[in-house]
Amino acid sequence: MLKKFVCIICPNGCEISAELEEGRIISVQGAGCSRGQEYVRQELINPVRNIASSVLLEGGALPLASVRLSNPVPKSRIFDVMDEIKKAKLTAPVSIGQTVIHNVLGLGSDVIVTKNISAH
């Protein structure tokens, strides 16, 4: 089976083809660098994603605090992680890097604040 990808690792956007046989990677062609090859292999074996979102902020200069994950999580768990993020609430002030949820769902990634927001 032939699968095609457009690499998102750098601005070159290489068109990469991967040949699979019985669930095994036979070949990867078209990558302009080793990072592109690794990206495609990761996508085929265990695709992961990072999430950026926001959390309700009480008593802050802004109503929401922007957050992101400290490490990517399995693509199949994105909606589960978002459900946990939706439950979270913070009280101002908040600081960049502040942990909102430690080790969300046991996936080895923290939900962290990405912007300093003062109390109002």
Rank of each mutant, 00 (worst) to 15 (best):
S17D: 07
L57C: 08
R68E: 15
M82N: 03
A18S: 04
P63L: 13
V104G: 11
I117R: 05
A65K: 09
V48K: 11
V94T: 12
I112C: 08
L90I: 13
R35Y: 08
C14P: 08
S76K: 04
L64I: 03
V94N: 09
N50R: 02
K87Y: 11
T99C: 10
I26Q: 02
V111L: 14
V67Q: 07
C10E: 04
A61P: 00
S76N: 05
V28K: 00
K86Q: 13
R35I: 02
N103D: 15
G13L: 08
N71G: 02
H120Y: 10
P72Q: 05
P93Q: 11
G32Q: 00
N50K: 01
C14M: 10
I78G: 01
I96N: 04
P11M: 09
V104S: 12
V6E: 00
P11S: 14
D83A: 15
V81F: 10
G36E: 01
A88H: 10
D110L: 06
D110V: 07
P93G: 05
P47H: 04
A65I: 13
H120S: 15
T114L: 00
L62W: 06
A119D: 03
E58T: 12
I16C: 00
N116V: 05
G59Y: 12
S34H: 08
V94E: 05
T114F: 00
E21S: 14
K87V: 10
S34E: 14
H102G: 10
A18F: 00
S27G: 06
K75R: 15
A31N: 11
N116W: 02
V48H: 09
L69Y: 07
M82D: 02
I16D: 03
S53A: 15
T99H: 08
P93S: 06
R49A: 13
L105W: 13
H120F: 13
K86F: 13
L56V: 15
Q98P: 11
T91K: 15
F5V: 06
R68N: 08
